[in-house]
């Protein structure tokens, strides 16, 4: 796989860039796994940090990967943008082996990325991070009027919904008519 390994090189096992090693080093050397997103940039993540993701944790348990195998075959998440995966990896590293606080100040600040982040976190099954993100989305509409909520959450009006429904019906009708005509042509 042609990829740029972030924070490490293929020759020497390097420290993960995003996670500072904990002061009390574990007796058993920690194992690392590798993930990449749409941009193919490989992120090295410790098994401890990956515990947050039920999906990856399940993949590791089920596949029984050794570290070498994991390095040769990073987990591909082609549906997740590279910068979003980086945010997720950072969060997992920051919360490695720690109880998650009720209020998280380490949430990514970029609101414009929140939608993609929510989808990625939901896909990766990182429950705590999903909870924080959802809380942030709920906070967006605090004290807002229905019109403001509609704008913030991009909710179509009833008129827009009706117009979209009519359009969809019209399109379905046209498609059905086209199929009937094609079938009649075949029969001839």
């Amino acid at each position: 796989m042609s990829s740029t390994e972030q924070g490490t090189s293929s020759a020497a096992p390097a420290e993960p860039t995003t996670a500072p090693e904990s002061a009390a080093a574990p007796e058993v050397p920690e194992s690392f796994y590798y993930v990449h997103g749409k941009d193919k940039v490989v992120h090295k993540v410790s098994a401890g940090a990956l515990q947050h993701s039920a999906l990856i944790h399940g993949m590791i348990s089920n596949l029984g990967y050794t570290e070498e195998q994991a390095k040769a075959n990073p987990f591909p998440f082609e549906n997740i943008d590279g910068d979003i995966l980086q945010m997720v990896v950072d969060w997992c590293n920051q919360h490695k082996g720690k109880p998650t606080p009720p209020e998280d100040t380490n949430l990514p600040k970029q609101k414009e990325k929140l939608f993609d982040l929510v989808l990625a976190v939901n896909y990766l099954e990182i429950k705590e991070l999903l909870t924080y993100c959802c809380k942030q989305v709920a906070m967006m509409v605090k004290g807002k009027s229905p019109e403001e909520i509609r704008e913030i959450w991009m909710i179509p009006t009833d008129a827009e919904d009706e117009a979209a429904e009519k359009e969809a019906k019209k399109r379905a009708g046209k498609e059905a008519a086209g199929e009937t005509a094609a079938a009649a042509g075949d029969a001839k």
């Binding site: 939608f115 989808l119 989305v137 959450w153 991009m154």
Partner: peptide, 8 residues
């Protein structure tokens, strides 16, 4: 920044 909630 808008968040398309109905697409989640």
């Amino acid at each position: 920044m808008p968040f398309p909630i109905l697409r989640t």
